[in-house]
Design a protein around this nucleic acid. Structure first.
Lengths: 199, 199, 199, 199
DNA sequence: TATGAATGAGTGTTCATTCAT
DNA sequence: AATGAATGAACACTCATTCAT
């Protein structure tokens, strides 16, 4: 279930470098977007360009690794809330925290977007991981009556991606988040479909 | 109503070329994303690359012009609904139509995002234009009791951008749109702030 | 029947540059071998690297153009001898002249080798051109009784390539050429197959 | 008989590794040409890249060692024919066998070419070794009246290199070999120089 | 001694932008 | 004004070679 599928475990220093590169890539892509150059990543990591390519043989694979790492961290965070007392607060709190992080990190948005699209299998293993963890949070919040019953984990992830994007690129603030939270919450009089038609 | 403040009025054929380039750019960027090459735009427009750069001295400025044109069209569309009978339907219908268009046009998303960020003055004149037109739609829908009173036009634009992004990149569908519509609609028991906290 | 298949004829200066690049490539590849860099070619031609790639979109295509040009020149030379008085002298003289040129130009060897291999169609149109011209020379020399009848133009081209290689890389001299000429000449007592078996 | 003049004798396992690397290099260069990477050689040998460079400090030296090994084997083969009954058959058979091997092994050609050029001292000791062995075969064949008297061992080696090249790169077949054999054979009416002039 | 991770100069290629025609 | 050839910095990626483990 770990990320690397390498034959033998990497040497300690190699592992350290891999981590340095990954961290640098995360920073660089977060700030400059995914079109930042691999040279920039190497520079920030303090390693030679060859080292970057030794660990991640294409830029694509580096990007993928960054996304996977992000998604894994989010999934862990979600799993940590799995048995929180207030299921509703856990769900909405997680959602808000992810969005607030996007204010700085473009990569979060992209990671979420990729994770939501199954066709593009870049985020391969990690996407489902997050979706599953989020699913648990969602199910508990629904059972507790805090979230409407007719929303799927996939829909929540799409909302998450959209909100992150809106926050980071279109200047969305808590007002916007509140609207979405209200849309998600169960406290509403009307049965499904009674609201404004979504087509 | 025109965007450019050029010194002398363009000759007829120059104007025609400018329009051809703009149309081609819109198509190309919509399909291939904004990283498509200017050569590709020139080819599609059937003009030389020099002509593209004569009218839009940098790629950035070409991109900006495309976004502005998009926003102007959206603003016009919104203005056309200004005196619709059902103010709620007008508002939600406009929203849904914009989002559905994003399924094909990557540029729409970006245009909306840019328009929402005042700091970035790329979309200069056109952003406010759309915001104003949308504001009218919103105010009427709020007056008619179809949309909650505590949302601003800026927030709606951010939501629009987020939804477009979610639709185009994260596979969002009508389920997601419905959630947002419910969040926006006025039919809810609780006064502001009673829902899940957005911080 | 010309080399370029471009839509419209190149401008005069573009043609000039194309020629400069081609000439530079020929020199560079002749001296340093085909693994010389395209940057080197650009430098020698006195143009920017972009110009090289505008005319020859890959290194492969540049190489091909160089080979084609070489083969075309050889073919022209062969055609010029088509109606020489002494058919034998024409044939052997052409052969010797080509080989002597290889002393300086690695590319000649490679061009001939490529031309001889039909599978590899790099030298596409030009290879057959040379083979045909050489075929005429050969047929006339055979008719004149100067060259044995059981050799084909393809075999002569392979010999030519081999001799060029031997000359340029293995220090072959006229002694070696003489042996091959004797092998090719008709003045021999034995009918085919009476010599040392070639298997 | 060994090539290296290293300070202290290698340990048994080191020797074994050296041999493994050499064998792998031979295979790799034979199949992929001399531009194959040293990493590939290490992989094929089943050793680390560091080991390759410990034994052969540059790629150039590895290449040289491969060529030397090839030439040594050819020399041994030639020596084995030193006292064959039919001196002519021995000579021509050896020649044909070497050429036929070139069909698969690019390196053979290069080895022969290098061996023929004294200036380039890469094949240092081994080149002369082959030339000497070949010289014996040649002298005996000449004494037996099977090969013309006015050819030197060096010329034969150049011919060998050229034929290998022609075979491997220009599609030469037995027809070509036959021509050369006829040129080399003694059964000809004319004294030296009566044939077509080689200049 | 053997390993393989690290290095960085070098490669082929692209593309926004300039400028001669 | 329009053209498209020319430019060269920038990019992703490779590979011979070095060096810490």
């Amino acid at each position: 279930m770990t990320t690397s599928a390498s034959r033998r475990p990497l040497r300690a220093d190699a592992l350290r470098n891999r981590a340095k590169v990954l961290a640098a890539a995360e920073e660089v892509f977060a700030v400059q977007g995914t079109s930042a150059s691999t040279d920039e990543v190497a520079r920030r990591a303090g390693v030679g360009i060859g080292t970057v390519f030794r660990h991640f043989p294409t830029k694509e694979s580096l990007l993928e690794a960054v996304l996977v790492a992000l998604l894994e961290r989010l999934a862990e965070e979600a799993e940590g809330l799995r048995s929180a007392d207030d299921a509703g607060a856990a769900f909405f709190g997680f959602f808000a925290r992810v969005v607030s992080r996007a204010k700085v990190k473009q990569a979060v948005t992209e990671a979420l977007a990729e994770a939501g699209v199954d066709a593009h299998d870049r985020a391969g293993t990690a996407g489902p991981g997050l979706k599953a963890a989020l699913g648990v949070l969602l199910a508990r919040a629904q059972a507790a009556g805090a979230v409407r019953a007719d929303v799927s984990a996939g829909e929540v992830m799409a909302l998450l991606a959209g909100l992150c994007y809106a926050t980071e690129r279109a200047g969305a603030d808590e007002g916007v988040l509140r609207v979405v939270f209200d849309g998600l919450s169960a406290r509403r009089a009307d049965p499904r479909g009674a609201g404004p038609s979504a087509t």
